[in-house]
Simulated scan of single mutants.
Amino acid sequence: MTTATAQPLPHVGITLNLTRDAKACAMCGVAVEHPVDRVDVNVGVRWHRLPGGNASDRAPRSLVVTFSRCEACAVRRQHAEALVELYPRVAAAQGARDVAALRFEAVLAVGDLLRAPISLDGAVSGNVSAVASARELALLLERVLAPALALPFSRDAEARQGIAGASPWAHVGPELRTAARDGLAAWLRARIAKPSSPVALPVPEGAEVLGCALCGVGTATAWRRFNVNPRPLGGSTRARALAAVACPVCADAIDRYGVGRTALAAALLAHAGVRRLGGVDDLEADLLAFAALPIGTPPNATPFEGADFDALRRDAARLGVTA
């Protein structure tokens, strides 16, 4: 049994009629014979003739087309939801949580379309690229989101009822593939680009905290301005927030965890070159951010001046954590 007559997809000679129980993957378009995930797309209102009525007797009805997700696309959706958890500030900038997850899912799909999958777990290896910071995720959205949002098979839901692509992403034409490839290449260039001669900048004028609010360093290649209440960073209660700045490493920790002791501990580990695995409660209890010190305290010459980075690295090695 079929639910629709297959029409050739652009640029592909073969499409598949779906059986009654199968659904097309909402992302890559392949047939899912035993669907578990359900993806409903509300196409809009359509007017239908009333049973037994005249030709002019019509009533509005919402048209909903149901898709699913294949195994590979379901895993990618899980990765997208993990990015929402890892980078809540970047996610919030996209709007509602489900909108952020949809956008993250779409940009990750670009990697699979081009057979250059994007992972979440560290360095670049071969043709596998990794989102390793809030900055890299923001750059990925900036460079790739426009073509990524045009990729899902369900984008043309009404025309694709009852059919599926003969292979993953068979519905994606050459122009869209080129746009996706150009965007991904631009992201890869941007994420590895480094100034030929980095310039150490002093803390900008107007900051009441004279060093990075977390690590205290007095010079950095860039600064993030923000207002900070010292209390969640180990300081005493103050009547007002302070104008502060953060160096790039500490700014990334703030993007991940917000301003607080968890971000402070994550920044310490990042400056030490230790990859954070699991909780950091034992570190959080003993840390004091630079912004918690009295106003006018001179900045540090190095991040977390006085911290024993060598001891942290030895502890990491002993626990099997990659430094």
Rank of each mutant, 00 (worst) to 15 (best):
L141G: 00
A100N: 03
D121H: 10
G111T: 10
A96E: 15
A100F: 05
R97L: 09
N127Y: 15
V64K: 07
V107P: 02
D121W: 06
V90T: 13
L149A: 03
A116N: 15
L113T: 00
A134M: 02
L50R: 14
L137N: 00
V110G: 01
A100H: 03
R61M: 05
A96T: 12
L137Y: 01
L120I: 08
E136F: 00
N127K: 15
G122I: 06
P51A: 13
R97K: 07
G126M: 11
E142W: 04
L108G: 04
Y87C: 14
R38V: 10
S68H: 06
L145C: 06
S133R: 04
A72R: 15
A74G: 14
R97I: 07
H79I: 06
A80C: 12
H79Q: 15
D121I: 05
V41L: 11
R89T: 14
R69D: 03
V131N: 00
S133D: 01
V99G: 12
L113R: 00
P147E: 00
R46A: 05
Q94K: 06
V75T: 13
V90F: 06
A74T: 10
A91R: 14
L83E: 01
S62F: 12
G53I: 13
L120Y: 08
D40F: 09
V144Y: 01
A148V: 07
A106C: 04
S62Q: 12
R135Y: 02
E142C: 04
R49N: 08
C70K: 09
G111I: 07
L113G: 00
S56E: 08
R103H: 14
A134F: 01
P88F: 07
V144F: 04
A146S: 11
L113S: 00
E105V: 03
